[in-house]
């Protein structure tokens, strides 16, 4: 059963997200129309998909720094393989990214290396591999074949595209996986306290491998679908993806030290950030203001989180 304080915390975060949305919706024409909401959803697909993976690695008490490089590399592989067909190419890309993620998890688990240290290496190495495979250039779907990927912009129920529906599916599936499967609960267990988890008989290696496999596969999925929609991929692409995904997770309440948070929180963090960044950018604010605002938003949320938890502890102490 979900604890009441978790529900309260999610409620406060969701309320804050709505405040952000309404603030911009009052200023921007059509921000609240079907086309505006559809564009907001489409704009959230990449960061949303990758954030779930990054969030899972954070829940395991680890951090996968390589997601941006892996997304770029997978994007290049998928665009180069698009001759196989859009979906087979995506399948190849995601499978490749999942294997890379699994190998990372295996190495970190067996060697006992800090994931930050290990994934700094893969962050650099995978980017280099992307440069080699692409010949240091962007790879593109031939212009005459761009019509074949137009289905990505089809609309369902007025606001959903195949990409945003896919993102919703990712949130639902991984939310259920974490909440209701043994493997999902093992990820929480090793993130919440590794020694305690070990003492309770939870294996350390399996959840580690699963967490990094999820992170890798979702980075690959995000990189694949965005590259296909753009009709191109570049070896230097997605270099800000990690920061955006990490910010999303932190705003959504995923604890850096692991074991705390959930996919609903990530979704709230995602839309809080997207409403904010998109709103500021749509008003024509310079890029530095967007960065400043995003940083301030993160600090505001974390400060609020600390305050909320302190208040909660104080009340609990008085009750006791």
């Amino acid at each position: 059963m979900v604890r009441r304080d978790t529900i309260n915390e999610l409620g406060i975060r969701a309320g804050f997200m709505l405040v952000v949305y309404l603030t911009f919706a009052l200023q921007l024409p059509n921000y609240h129309t079907a086309t505006g909401i559809a564009a907001l959803l489409d704009g959230a697909v990449l960061i949303g998909t990758v954030s779930v993976g990054v969030g899972i690695s954070m829940l395991a008490g680890e951090f996968d720094l390589s997601v941006g490089s892996l997304a770029a590399l997978t994007g290049i592989i998928v665009v180069q393989a698009v001759g196989l067909g859009v979906f087979p190419a995506m399948l190849v890309g995601v499978a490749f990214a999942a294997v890379i993620g699994a190998l990372q998890g295996l190495a970190i688990g067996i060697l006992g290396v800090n994931s930050l240290v290990f994934t700094i290496g893969s962050l650099i190495g995978l980017r280099g591999l992307a440069m080699v495979i692409s010949g240091e250039n962007s790879v593109t779907i031939p212009i005459d074949h761009l019509d074949e990927i137009d289905f990505f912009t089809d609309r369902y129920f007025g606001i959903f595209s195949p990409l945003s529906l896919g993102m919703v599916a990712v949130f639902v599936l991984f939310g259920l996986f974490l909440r209701f499967t043994r493997w999902g609960r093992e990820i929480y267990a090793i993130g919440g306290g590794r020694n305690e988890a070990k003492a309770a008989g939870v294996p350390l290696l399996r959840p580690m491998v699963i967490a990094f496999t999820c992170s890798g596969a979702l980075a690959g999925l995000g990189g694949s679908v965005l590259s296909l929609r753009l009709g191109s991929a570049t070896p230097l692409g997605f270099d800000t993806l990690l920061l955006s995904a990490a910010t999303t997770c932190l705003i959504g309440g995923i604890a850096l030290d692991g074991g705390r948070g959930n996919v609903i929180g990530i979704a709230i963090g995602l839309f809080t950030l997207r409403f904010f960044i998109t709103g500021v950018a749509s008003l024509g604010a310079p890029y530095y203001v967007q960065n400043l605002a995003a940083g301030a938003l993160l600090i505001l949320v974390i400060a609020g989180q600390i305050g909320f938890r302190a208040l909660h502890r104080r009340r609990a102490f008085h009750r006791a």
């Binding site: 024409p29 559809a38 564009a39 753009l230 998109t278 749509s282």
Partner: peptide
Amino acid sequence: DSQVQQEIASG
């Protein structure tokens, strides 16, 4: 790309 989509959607 996301900004392009958003701007066009703004109407």
